[in-house]
């Protein structure tokens, strides 16, 4: 993945928070993640990538952030089911929007949501994983992009 493609993901994340909550997220400098030490928060939405690229994209956030996003979006049901739902939807939207950069052969799976910060997400072994740190209303979350040419 090159710098332009990484920047595309940064722009997509900023646009998502701005549009859904009215407050843009502060996105930190992306860095190369260590395979065994990637950030995992309370809820993680994982999207598998196939087609002209392969790998995965995941969005991981603490429950506190997800509750705030739901409230901003006018949702009153703040159950764990809805926290998982919004996590999967954010991951799906970010990965889907990346087709503008990667083209229509960038195929995305339906989201799989993993609950619990002690979980481990299995990543492709031979594709670098970039961590895009973000903060929204002083709450930290992460987007992890591990995508390479098929």
């Amino acid at each position: 993945m090159d710098e332009t493609q990484l920047k595309a993901f940064v722009g997509i994340v900023q646009n998502y928070f701005d549009k859904i909550t009215g407050n843009p997220a502060e996105v930190g400098t992306p860095f190369l993640g260590e395979p065994g030490d990637l950030p995992i928060h309370d809820f993680t939405g994982v999207i598998g990538i196939s087609g002209n690229q392969r790998g995965c994209v995941y969005f991981s956030a603490p429950a506190l952030m997800l509750r705030e996003i739901l409230l901003r979006a006018g949702e009153t049901d703040l159950s764990d089911g809805n926290l998982a739902d919004i996590t999967g939807e954010i991951a799906n939207t970010i990965a889907g929007n990346a087709r503008r950069e990667f083209g229509s052969e960038f195929l995305i799976s339906v989201p799989v949501v993993v609950r619990g910060s002690g979980q481990h997400i299995t990543m492709p072994k031979d594709v670098k994983a970039y961590v895009i740190p973000l903060r929204w209303r002083k709450i930290a979350a992460s987007l992890v992009v591990s995508v390479g040419k098929a």
Binding site: T93, A95, G96, R99, R100, G103, S104, I108
Partner: peptide, 9 residues
């Protein structure tokens, strides 16, 4: 109503 926002889709 979709996140697949490329023109081809």
């Amino acid at each position: 109503v979709s996140a697949l926002s490329d023109k081809a889709t």
